[in-house]
Amino acid sequence: MANRRVATLKWKGSVGPRIEKIIEKLKYESGHCIAYLAGDMKYQVSHLSGREFVVDLAARTCSCRRWDLCGIPCPNAIACILRKGQDVALYVDDCYKKATYLKAYAPVISPLPGQDQWDKPSNETTRIDPPIYKKQTGRPKKKRAKDPSEEPLVTSHEGKKLKRWIYTKPYACRSCGQEGHTSKTCGKQQNQASTSQSTQGVTQSTNNKPTSTQTRKVGRGSGMVRGRAMGRGTCRERGMISSS
């Protein structure tokens, strides 16, 4: 800030050297403009390209709006200022002026000595301790306070919030690796599978049930082979088995 302050004091004009270069370039472009006085510091400017512009030096505006945006007179405005015989720097915005720069860099940052030269506290009472922490009553909150403008992501037809699933693919069991269940329900799934297999076996055996003639030959034993050899049917069935 001190260097900027010293450099600003060396300015020769009322604006900085960078702004002076821009003004000189715009003066060269203003040679293609012809200004006609309309009255009350208002001019009509005709460009060599055939375009027409309206310049108001009192309001510091031009219909091309270049002067309004950057604060530096455009070539159309410079043509009017030169016809009036005034300095272009007078119509530059105040933010580019020397007085504004000096006011911006006027504050002085005071230098500081080394840490070894700092004043040491006489006692411990001057030490700044952190504030005393007091545990608040109740369970700490885990959810953030939502803004009233925030809306729920998904709601049902009854107005209740629905769960938001974050799984992008079906989860799999860690024990067997199959999808559709977890390791906690893995045993239940296997039991259901075995039950379904046994049910299918019963249905198949029911479909393959032997005829009445075969039943008479087999008897009511515990097994197929045992029924043939050691059947406990009627005498007629025993006679058939012995004769066979």
Rank of each mutant, 00 (worst) to 15 (best):
I34W: 00
Q178D: 04
A79R: 10
V92D: 00
S212Q: 14
E29G: 00
G16L: 05
Q86V: 11
M41F: 10
S212V: 15
G221C: 04
A89E: 15
K146H: 07
C80W: 09
C186N: 03
W118I: 02
E52A: 11
A77T: 07
I78E: 00
S196Q: 14
S63G: 13
C235N: 13
C186R: 04
P111H: 04
Q197K: 13
M240S: 13
R18S: 09
L112K: 14
C173L: 05
G219S: 07
K135V: 15
V45A: 00
K27S: 01
A99L: 08
G180Y: 06
N76V: 00
T206Q: 12
A58T: 14
A35F: 02
T126V: 12
G50L: 09
P75R: 03
Y167K: 05
P121K: 15
V15R: 04
V54D: 04
R144I: 12
L153N: 06
C80M: 09
N191W: 04
R65M: 06
G219F: 06
S110M: 08
R226A: 06
D147P: 11
Q86A: 11
N207G: 01
E158V: 08
R60A: 06
S156R: 10
V108P: 01
R60M: 08
T155C: 00
L37Y: 13
G177S: 01
P152T: 03
